[in-house]
Simulated assay, not measured.
Amino acid sequence: MIIKPTSSLRTELGEITKICKEKAEPVYLTKNGEGELVIMSIAAYEHREAMLDLRTKLLEAEKQRLNGAPSYTSDEVREYIRSLHNDQV
């Protein structure tokens, strides 16, 4: 975890940007020793958002499964995909 005071934004913005991009992790900024802001690269942010979206979808699928929604084995799905391909040929 990288922690810096908010005052470092004025003097170390280039270094903070480089850390965010190269390490792909956020930099935590503090003010008077208390957490104030988090800075991260756009790539890291988009990756985080994609992971959260995937997690939401997986939780919803698990909820549906627990509520009795039909489920399929990988073999059943594979066969279904093959049948779709064969129908198009």
Rank of each mutant, 00 (worst) to 15 (best):
N67L: 11
R82D: 13
E34I: 10
D75Y: 11
I39S: 03
I42E: 15
A24P: 04
S7C: 00
R48D: 14
E62F: 04
L58T: 09
I3Y: 07
T56S: 13
Y28I: 14
Q88S: 12
K57S: 12
Y28T: 12
N32I: 08
L59A: 08
R78E: 12
A43P: 05
G35F: 13
L84R: 06
S83I: 01
I2S: 03
L37T: 06
S74P: 09
T30Y: 01
L84V: 10
I42R: 15
T73A: 05
E22N: 05
R10P: 01
L66T: 04
K18H: 06
L58F: 07
H47M: 15
N67K: 10
T6Q: 08
K31P: 00
I39R: 04
L66F: 11
H47N: 14
E62Q: 10
E12T: 00
I81W: 07
L29I: 03
A43H: 15
I81P: 01
V38P: 00
I2L: 06
L13N: 09
R78D: 11
E49I: 14
I2F: 09
E60P: 02
A44M: 12
Y80W: 14
M40G: 06
K18N: 07
T30A: 05
M40P: 04
K21D: 09
V38E: 02
L52H: 08
E15P: 01
L59D: 12
I81D: 08
I39T: 06
E36D: 08
E34S: 06
E34Q: 09
L9D: 05
L9N: 04
E15R: 08
Q64K: 14
L54S: 07
V77F: 01
E62P: 02
T30E: 06
A24F: 06
Q88F: 15
R55C: 06
N86I: 13
T73M: 10
E25G: 03
A24V: 05
A50F: 09
T17F: 12
A43S: 15
K4L: 09
K18I: 04
L84A: 08
N67D: 13
G35T: 05
E46A: 04
S71E: 15
E46C: 05
P5F: 00
S41D: 07
M51H: 07
P26R: 02
I2D: 03
L58N: 11
